[in-house]
Design a protein around this nucleic acid. Structure first.
Lengths: 216, 216, 216, 216
DNA sequence: AATGAATGAGCCTTCATTCAT
DNA sequence: GATGAATGAAGGCTCATTCAT
C-alpha cells in the first residue's frame, strides 16, 4: 500500500521560497543591468538555481521581469504614509508627504527594488501599468487630494503642475543623482543628507505655494 | 522591455555621408531600444547599409553609441540660451533659463535625440562623461551662477539644492511624461502646453526663492 | 592552405558521451585544417551536434582544442614502451626505443591523433606545454637516460645532440613523409615498410654511436 | 598632339617594388601566423599599402601565398652549395653538404623565408609542388648522388633511408627547436651552436655509414 | 518538482573581396 | 595604376528556451 497522501507544506513552501529567491535575484540583476542586459543565467546563478528555473517557475524572462517589478513595489515602504494621521492639518500632511518621498528616493528600504521601479517608470514597459495602478497612482492621488485641500481655488491643471513640481523635486535625487555627481563631483552631492534635502524641498515648496515659512 | 526591433522601413536613400546616415539610424534605434536592446543589424538595416558598416565606420557598437549620443546633444537646441542677453537682470535671465529648459524638455527639436540623451543620463554609461562635459555641465553652471547672483547670502549647498529643485521640475516632464499619462490619463497631461508649464514653473520657482510674483 | 572544410559526413550516432563525440570530431577537423582553419561549426556538424555544443561542453574553441590535443596524445600508444624490460642491456633497450618510435611515427594507432599532435609540436601553441609535460618529455628523458648509460664519458651536450639525431631520424617519417613523396614519388616512399625503416635507423644509430653491428 | 609614348621604367619598377614589398610583408606574416591566421589586412598594413593591394596585385590571398612561398625559397641561400667543388672527394662533399644544411636550418639567411618554407613543407599545400621542384628536390638529388658515390653497393632503398636519416638530423633543429626548448629548457638548447651541431651531425653520420672518424 | 543537457536563433565582429573612382 | 568605401559571408560566442528524465 502506498503511503498516505499527506499534506506537504514543505514542498509548497520550498516552491514558494524558490520563486521568492528567484524574484529577489531578478530584482537585483534587472536593477543593475536592465532588462536586456540581464541574463537569465546570471539571475539563476545568483539564486543558486538551475538555468531552467526561470522558465520552469515563470514561463519566460519577461514574465519574471514583470513579477519582479510587481514584487519590488511591495517591498518599497509605501505603508508608513498610509497610517499617516489624517486629522493633521493639510500643510502638515504635505510636509510629511514630502519628507516621506524624499526619504524613499534617497535611501529606499530596498535600494534595488526602488532602482528597478524607477527604471521601469523611466521606460515604461509591460510592468508599468500594474506598477502605476498599485504603487504610483495612490501616491499621486494622495498628493492631489492634499493640494485640493490646500489650493481649492486653483484649477485642476494648476494643481496638476504643482504636483509635478513637488514630485519632480523629489524624483530628481533618484533619477539624476549619478549625473549630478558627474557635474559637481561626488562629495558635493553626497554632502546633501536626507534631512537637508527634505528640509529644502519642504521650504521651497511651502514658499512656492504660499504656505510661508514653517512655524518653529 | 521594448518590443522587438522589427522591420523598420529604411531611411530614404540620401546624399548624406554614410557616417551621418548611420548616426541618424543609431540615434533612433538606440533611443527606442536602449544600448543592449539595439542590434547593429537593425541600425544598419535602418540606415540602408550592410551589417559590416558599423564596424567599418566606427570600429564597434560602443563607439557608434558614444558618437550617436555626442551627435544627439549637438542636435539639441542648446544654442539659443547662449545668445541670451547678459545685461538683463538675474531674475529675468532665470525666467528665460527656465522657459528654455521647459521648452527643450517638452518638445525637443529632435525627439529621438533628446530621448537618447535622457536615456544615457538616467543610466550613465560610456557616453555620460562626454555628455556632461560638453552639454550638461555648462547648463548647470549657468544656473549656479544665476543663483549666486540671486541668493548671494545662501550657502553653496542651499543653492545646489535650489538648482536641483528647478531642474527637477523641468526634467520631470521629459523623464516621467509617460508615467504621468498612465496615472492621470493622456488627455489630462497633453492639455499642459509648453507655455502653461513654463509659466507654472517660473511662478512656482519665483515664489519659492522669494522673487515674488512677476510684475505684469 | 588546406581545402575548405566542406560537407564531411557526420559521425554515426553513437552512445559515446557528447564530449567524447565532440573531441573525436575536433581531433579530425583540427588535424586536417589546423586551429585557425577549423571552424567550430564544422566540428559540431561532424559530431552531429549543434553549433552551441562546443561552447556548452568546453566553454570555447581554444579549450576544446587543448582538450582534443590532450586526448590525442592519450590515444597514441605510448604505453607499450612503459612495460619495457628494464633489466635488458642498454643497447637492447635503445633498439626497442627506436623501433617503438619508428612504429609510432610510421603507422600511428590513430592517424588523426598523431597528426594533431605533430601539428601542435611543429607550431607550439596553447596545448604544447601540457603535451610536452605529459607526453614528450618522459620519452625524451628515457632516451637521455639510455644514452647516459651507453655513453657515460660524453658531455651532456654531445648526448643531447645524439638524442636529437636519433629522434630526428624517427620524426622525419612523420613530419616530412608527404614532401618525400613529392620528391621521390609515392611508390618509392611507400616501399619503405616500418620494419625496414626501423632496421635502418637502428643500424644507422648503432654504427653512429659505436655499438657496432647488432649481433645476429 | 599627344606626347610620345615613351618607355616608363619607373612605373614598372614601382609596380615591381609594390609587389616586392607585398611579398616581403606576406612572407613575414604568413611565417608568423600561418595561412589561415594571417589576414590580408595585416599584410597590406605591414607593406604600407591599401587593403585592396593584395587583390589588385595578386588576385587573391591564395595566389599571394603561393608567390610568397616561391619567393621565399629563392631568398634561401641554396646557391653556395651549387658552386661546391665537384672535384673534391665524395666524403668531403658530404661533409660540406651536411654543414651547409645544418647552417641553413640553424641560422637561415632569411629566417622568415625559411620559416615559411618549412611551414609549407610540414603541411604541403598549393605551393608545395613548386617548392619541391625548384628547391627541395635538387638538394635531395644532390644528396642521393653523393650517397651513390659513397655507398654504391647498397640498394636504392637503403640509400634513400640513409638520406632521410641525414636530412632528418638537420631538419630536426628547425622543425622541433621550440619543443626541444620546452623539454630541456631554452639555455640547454641555445648552447648548441651551429658549429657544434654541424660537427656532431658530420661525425654521427660518418660513423653511421662507415666513413670512420674524419682525419684531422 | 526540478534539473542538466542540448538547441537554434541571434549577437558583434572580422574576413577576403569588389567596385567606383 | 591604385585606393578608399563598402559588402556579404562567415567567424566564435551567448542567449532564452526546451526536453527528457
Amino acid at each position: 500500500m502506498a503511503t498516505e497522501p499527506i499534506d506537504v507544506p514543505e514542498l509548497a513552501e520550498s516552491n514558494e521560497s524558490a520563486k521568492e529567491r528567484l524574484l529577489a535575484a531578478a530584482e537585483e540583476i534587472f536593477a543593475d543591468y536592465g532588462y536586456e542586459g540581464a541574463s537569465v543565467r546570471a539571475i539563476c546563478h545568483r539564486a543558486g538555481m538551475n538555468v531552467a528555473a526561470v522558465n520552469y517557475h515563470f514561463g519566460d524572462k519577461e514574465t519574471l521581469y514583470v513579477e519582479a517589478v510587481k514584487r519590488a513595489h511591495n517591498c518599497s515602504d509605501t505603508k508608513p504614509v498610509d497610517d499617516d494621521d489624517p486629522t493633521a492639518p493639510a500643510s502638515v500632511r504635505l510636509e510629511r508627504f514630502i519628507r516621506h518621498m524624499v526619504a524613499m528616493m534617497h535611501e529606499p528600504a530596498s535600494p534595488s527594488a526602488m532602482k528597478l521601479v524607477v527604471r521601469e517608470m523611466a521606460d515604461p514597459g509591460k510592468a508599468a501599468a500594474t506598477l502605476v495602478d498599485e504603487f504610483i497612482r495612490p501616491i499621486a492621488f494622495r498628493l492631489r487630494a492634499l493640494l485640493q485641500e490646500l489650493q481649492p481655488h486653483q484649477t485642476d491643471e494648476e494643481r496638476l503642475m504643482t504636483g509635478f513640481s513637488i514630485i519632480g523635486q523629489c524624483l530628481y535625487y533618484r533619477q539624476n543623482r549619478r549625473v549630478s555627481e558627474l557635474i559637481f563631483g561626488k562629495p558635493q552631492v553626497e554632502a546633501l543628507t536626507v534631512d537637508m534635502v527634505a528640509d529644502h524641498v519642504v521650504r521651497f515648496t511651502r514658499n512656492a505655494i504660499g504656505l510661508g515659512e514653517r512655524p518653529a
